[in-house]
């Protein structure tokens, strides 16, 4: 199930946008593709991000993958639990596996992201 209240990127990040703030994570599709996640580079608070800029790296047993910021802004909170329990992303990609919270510097950017229906269509194009 793709949650209807989130926005999505083509790199399979999600953003839950609430006025001037957004919670960020990676999608269920992304965690399935990665397999067992064994390490998460927990983002550092106060970091200033640009939309599409590198936000974090997650590793599975076999490979490392970069995570990109879906929106621009400052990281105001990070999910420290991922340091010891990176598997939270596999178990709960949209809830307990969130990566960080960003204070948006440009709320209009959200319009560049896909909604749930568009993301679902995008996933379907990847299957072909």
């Amino acid at each position: 199930m793709i949650p209807g209240d989130l926005k999505y990127t083509k790199d399979h990040e999600w953003a839950k946008i609430d006025l001037n703030h957004a919670v960020i994570g990676i999608t269920d599709h992304a965690q399935k593709e990665l397999g067992d996640i064994t390490f998460v580079e927990v983002p550092e608070t106060k970091t200033i991000l640009k939309q599409g800029g590198a936000l974090s790296t997650v590793e599975s047993v076999k490979a490392a993958s970069d995570i990109y910021a879906p929106v621009s802004g400052e990281i105001i909170e990070a999910n420290e639990a991922l340091a010891d329990k990176p598997e939270l992303i596999n178990q709960s990609p949209y809830e307990k596996g969130w990566l960080c919270k960003i204070k948006l510097s440009d709320p209009k950017e959200a319009s560049k992201l896909m909604d749930a229906r568009q993301y679902e269509e995008y996933l379907n194009t990847l299957k072909k």
């Binding site: 067992d36 064994t38 599975s60 047993v61 076999k62």
Partner: peptide, 10 residues
């Protein structure tokens, strides 16, 4: 096959 049920579990 790289994995069946998952590398950690296997």
């Amino acid at each position: 096959p790289i994995q069946y049920s998952g590398i950690l579990e296997e």
